[in-house]
Design a protein around this nucleic acid. Structure first.
Length: 587
RNA sequence: GCCAGCGUAGCUCAGGGGUAGAGCAGCGGUUUCGUAAACCGCAGGUCGUGGGUUCAAAUCCCUCCGCUGGCUCCA
């Protein structure tokens, strides 16, 4: 039996964190030497590196970074020791008399003693630990400057933050920077343009997505799959209008709570209407067109519903954060005693979707009661426990996100990571105690009395836009065959093979495959290169040999090449890849 | 929204007070080719917008719009 405490890897990562934290202090010393008037915020280690926040007499520009780096290198070369000492809070206050942010921090420390770390001329309030001397920082680079509000509060002053990355060795640093460059190639905004999937136009407005034919094919396939799967799982597909009277949104509370996210009302025949920011109200109206017995619950209304929300200009991001998007939405109306089974059902569906589309990098979060909430604590606790039980039943590992629930109920979020490691919320399951009450959404129970339903808002993809972003980055644009906008590119060797190539194209198309002939009078090499850049799964090169023997020569986008084979054989291979939704090309 | 940076041809980018450039893509020819870029030619831009400084602005200054990276936010 192994009795040792920490594993080697864990110890290494702790050491690296200390190095990164110390690098932040060294950077602060460098900044202090350049700007003696600098006021210091905080400077922690973060994933891959560190940052430090400064209040400086002028704005930093990227040109400042090499100067600060040079200074840091001097400090590191001098190998100054990091010295820890403890002083009383009062002594610390005197020491940091000219440092308002530090004073604020000192005042919040409960202990009578506070610890300080000093290297060279720079002394900082800090819990530590640190390296013993600056020379232990082996490889770092300053990467960017950003504004950051003091203590993350937008009503506090904005400080200047410098981000750096730091690693054990120069090689590890170079490897990391290389990885960043590779990640940029997977960025859905770049691939979206290169692969002709979508565009966003200044003329039309930021955050408004135009789906090109190739992006639209992917969406169309996903939507068809999504609808079929929902019908199989007991959902009913509905459609609701894109605008509705403002009064409806006043009743729901959205006008009061989410006004900042709503587009201004438009007047129609002296009535005010708004464009919908959510689909739920339409579904509620459908539900309420008649009385419902407890026997017919749960009812599940699903809609690929397009919504519009005003997002602040600084937060828009490709397809991941937009102002108009289509949610793969559904609302489940059920009894409280059905909640757990329903959540299990949704989680099972969400996981089925995640697996089918091949995602592996995601995290599951259970968000609990926030400070401002509707309903009673008891109901909240019951519902939160129910969500937790559902997660356990389905066997999903999850973390608690305390206080991050929506005011109307707890929720489960599934977040996908993008190419640069940023997390974006995809599937979400939210329990709602608020709307059923506000709209009096009820069923008639066994006791012949009216009871409020429990509503679940849920998506299993998130939105079509964000989902395409995630999908594109996950596959680096090389979509699985069933999703690939174009599945087969037919490449005739010379013009005399065009007839045969077109016949093949027609044959494949008639069986539902997406095939196209490259009819240009270009070299075979050129056409193959183009097909490779377009990341088309299969390329069929046809020349004299193939025409003579009625075969095709298959090249995969992996570069793998296969012997000539009968066309029927190839068709079966592609069909099976489509039907089985295979993630990797294999033959 | 806030801080910083950026905006030159469809794309990637050069030029930085004195007549707007390249490669790729596009178009027209020639070439008919066997698994990642044939050759020749042509065309393509109010240098994001509006204003200012100047004899002269893509270039310097300001406004706005958009994008990028952060921050805040994200029902």
């Amino acid at each position: 039996m192994v009795v040792s405490g920490k594993g080697q890897a864990e110890a290494n990562s702790e050491k690296l964190e200390i190095v990164r934290h110390s690098a932040a202090h060294v950077m602060a010393e460098a900044v202090q030497s350049i700007f003696p008037q600098a006021k210091f915020g905080i400077g922690p280690a973060i994933e891959n590196g560190f940052y430090y926040d400064f209040d400086l007499p002028r704005s930093l520009t990227p040109d400042d970074l090499p100067l600060i780096e040079a200074k840091m290198n001097e400090i590191i070369a001098s190998n100054v020791p990091f010295v820890r000492q403890e002083v009383t809070r009062e002594e610390a206050r005197q020491l940091f008399a000219a440092q308002p942010y530090k004073l604020e921090l000192i005042n919040e420390i409960a202990d009578e003693k506070v610890s300080l770390y000093q290297q060279g001329s720079f002394i900082d309030l800090c819990r530590g630990p640190h390296v013993s001397s600056a020379g232990e920082i082996k490889a770092f680079k300053l990467v960017s400057i950003a504004g950051a509000y003091w203590r993350g509060d937008e009503y506090h002053p904005m400080l200047q933050r410098i981000y750096g990355v730091a690693f054990d060795t120069k090689e590890a640093l170079a490897e990391y920077l290389e990885k960043l460059e590779e990640a940029a190639k997977r960025d859905h905004r770049k691939l979206g343009r290169d692969l002709d999937l979508f565009s966003i136009h200044e003329e039309a407005g930021p955050g408004l997505v135009h789906w090109h034919p190739k992006g639209a094919v992917i969406r169309y396939i996903i939507e068809g799959f999504w609808k079929d799967e929902h019908i199989k799982r007991g959902y009913d597909i509905v459609y609701t209008p894109h605008i509705a009277k403002l009064d409806l949104w006043k009743t729901s509370g959205h006008w009061e709570f989410y006004r900042d996210y709503l587009y201004s009302p438009m007047e129609v025949e002296e009535q005010e209407y708004i464009i919908k920011p959510m689909n739920c109200l339409g579904h509620i109206l459908i539900y309420k067109t008649r009385l419902h017995s407890y026997r017919e619950l749960p009812l599940r209304y699903a809609e690929l519903g397009t919504v519009y929300r005003y997002e602040r200009s600084g937060v828009l991001h490709g397809l991941s954060r937009v102002r108009g998007f289509t949610q793969d939405d559904a609302h489940i109306f059920c009894r409280f005693d059905q909640l757990e089974d329903e959540v299990v059902g949704v989680l099972d569906l969400a996981r089925f979707m995640i697996d089918t589309f091949g995602f592996t990098n995601y995290q599951v979060l259970l968000s609990t009661r926030p400070e401002k909430y509707a309903g009673t604590i008891q109901v909240w606790e019951e519902a939160t426990e129910t969500l937790g039980r559902a997660l356990t039943r389905i066997g999903l590992d999850y973390q608690i996100d305390p206080g991050e629930g929506v005011f109307y109920g707890p929720k489960i979020d599934i977040k996908f990571e993008d190419a640069q490691g940023r997390a974006w919320q995809g599937p979400t399951i939210q329990v709602d105690f608020n709307l059923p009450k506000r709209f009096n959404v009820t069923y008639i129970g066994e006791d012949n009395q009216e009871h409020l339903v429990v509503m679940i808002h849920r998506t299993v993809l998130g939105s079509m836009e964000r989902f395409l972003a995630s999908l594109t980055e996950h596959y680096g644009g090389a979509f699985p065959v069933w999703l690939a906008p174009l599945q087969v590119k037919i490449i005739p060797v010379a013009d005399r093979h065009l007839y045969y190539a077109r016949k093949l194209e027609a044959e494949l198309k008639s069986e539902g495959m997406r095939a196209e002939v490259d009819t240009r009078s270009e070299t075979v090499n050129h056409k193959i290169r183009q097909a490779q850049l377009d990341k088309i799964p299969y390329m069929l090169v046809v020349g004299d040999k193939e025409v003579a023997s009625s075969t095709v020569s298959v090249r995969l986008r992996s570069g793998e090449q296969l012997a000539s084979q009968p066309c029927d054989n190839f068709k079966e291979i592609v069909k099976s890849a489509i039907v089985n939704k295979v993630k990797e090309l294999s033959l």
